[in-house]
Design a protein around this nucleic acid. Structure first.
Lengths: 190, 190, 190, 190
DNA sequence: CATGAATGAGCCTTCATTCAT
DNA sequence: TATGAATGAAGGCTCATTCAT
């Protein structure tokens, strides 16, 4: 006895697969319902239209990323903190590469959705900036503009993970994490 | 009497505008020919299909980016070199934000085109890696894996510029360039 | 505990409302069941399909009209009879404007139903024709073809009431009734 | 060499046929283009959507009716005038029965179009009212409210013609015209 | 070379109807 | 009887592409 929630969840999983396989633009609703094993009309019982499924997919996963950056860096062992954060980010990208790619496409195809995602990114950057400010308050960093530096460092991490997980650049996971941690560390700290 | 070359060039400019305004996916051939001021059928006298126009647009501009990173860093004043390179990159992004956005979309919509662009990026990264190796040979850098570091640093620059020029993040041009140069410098050098 | 008859009656009322509000063509079964406060499937426990509900609605109200014209005109005061009949017709239209409009739509959308309604109208006309013939037998009318005249006079009354009640023409109720009675009277009688 | 105008005209004729045969609601765009002998997309090159074709069909024929009633009644021979007007109306209905039926359906399906058609009818009625007022000014009519009487008499003619031409009531053309003329004449004149 | 009318495959979306519970 | 989730046929509309002139 599949419940309504089951069906919706199945449709979301199917949508994620279909959008990942074909891209949101080229994926047809038929591709989604075929993967979900439901009829054509069922899709529209749960989503107003194709775009709404994308929006649901995005918004219901949007917090994952920002949550990850939430942990404050431990002052005692900044490098270990960074390795931990960046390692977690790497694993997130490995796990959700399809969603990340979708995120990128969604930003292009749907400006409104792009705004939502920009906001998520801004929160992610803000948490890093807060960490930088905190470290700066302790006098252990070089003088940098926290927000600009945070943007740049987040960009470095994000885009590197993206190239590795989504675009398939042959970068070793651990080496990448270690290197990024090193670069962050020396870029910021005295 | 417009020559064939003129018409083709007009179509490419029009395509760039249309694709930038509407996104490649939503731009219709009619949007392109309207901007070019030519008839509908003329488009197909110069391009096999819509995709071919995108490919031409990409490939005929692809060298701009990679060329820019070509200059070796001057050992005497690395920071000035970096500021110069990054400033040029920033200006490139400001000027060609529409093309960059198109690049991103093209990578998604057209895997084959994505390969081409990945190759461009790889060359860009390779030049940076060569610069890193060169500096490492002089013993002035910390020990890093040149390719991984180059990927990460290029990613930082690219993505930061992207956020600023394409996604409209309110980052000051000079502060961004200076900050990026600083981060690169201290991330790499002893 | 609503009985089956209750539910059916509620559905008919709801159907009449929904069809009146939206037109039969654009009203969805969902609009009907929502107004009736019953589940979607319940509709099909009482009606074979959407069309059957329309047919029931029409046929179960079809007699109202024809009954009204049933009274023979009182020879002693023809004008008062006409005012009475036409006034009743006017009130009927005011009360059942939605049904009348539905009748019109049903005739268009469903030829078979159109036949039913044509038959109702024919009976209405036939009763008028009989009144005309009766009056003619008494030698008080001008020579007219009873059926043609009855059709025309019925058409005048019907359509005028329709314009007033359904299409919203700003005609005063009493003036209209009086005028119609006068026109009928002088059109027919010497 | 079919010109653009040809194609549009062919589509309008085809739309009229298809809408008449099947009713606007049930006629598919495919039914129209099949009759016009053109491709599916061609329809949308000439009409924004299906509704626009209906609107064009209606508005481009809306004047026919009102023009017909334009002739003033000749005072010398009112009856002959009425026979002429009503005969013309009858022929119009015989010729354009499909359009008239469509008019009715359009009023139901599309309130906005209904407004347009109400306005046409109002003009028709206004011309009749003017004729009545003119006759009243000469003291030859019984006292009636011109607008109400005009509405009623127009309704009689319209609806009778409608029943004959559209709903197929077996009424003889000449007998109907003569009877209507008689009824109008005696209804109005002393 | 240039044109733009014509094409038709393809996709999103609606909604009357069914049926397992 | 009552429910409402599920169905899928059907149809409106778009737009890349072709081709006769």
């Amino acid at each position: 006895m599949p419940t309504a929630t089951d069906t919706r969840a199945r449709l979301l999983v199917a949508a994620r697969q279909a959008f990942a396989d074909l891209g949101y633009g080229r994926a047809r609703v038929e591709d989604v319902v075929a993967r979900a094993g439901v009829g054509h009309g069922t899709f529209y019982a749960y989503f107003k239209n194709k775009r709404a499924a994308l929006a649901a997919l995005i918004s219901e996963n949007a917090t994952t990323l920002v949550d990850l950056a939430g942990q404050p860096w431990r002052p005692g062992d900044v490098r270990a903190s960074l390795v931990e954060v960046l390692g977690g980010l790497s694993d997130l990208y490995d796990r959700d590469a399809d969603l990340i790619a979708l995120w990128t496409e969604a930003s292009i195809q749907d400006p409104e959705l792009g705004q939502v995602l920009d906001e998520v990114r801004r929160q992610f950057v803000a948490r890093i900036a807060r960490n930088i400010e905190h470290a700066a308050g302790q006098g252990v960093t070089r003088p940098v503009d926290p927000l600009t530096a945070a943007t740049a460092l987040a960009a470095m991490a994000e885009q590197t993970m993206f190239l590795r997980a989504v675009r398939g650049e042959p970068l070793d996971r651990d080496l990448t994490v270690e290197t990024l941690a090193d670069l962050w560390l020396h870029a910021l700290y005295r």
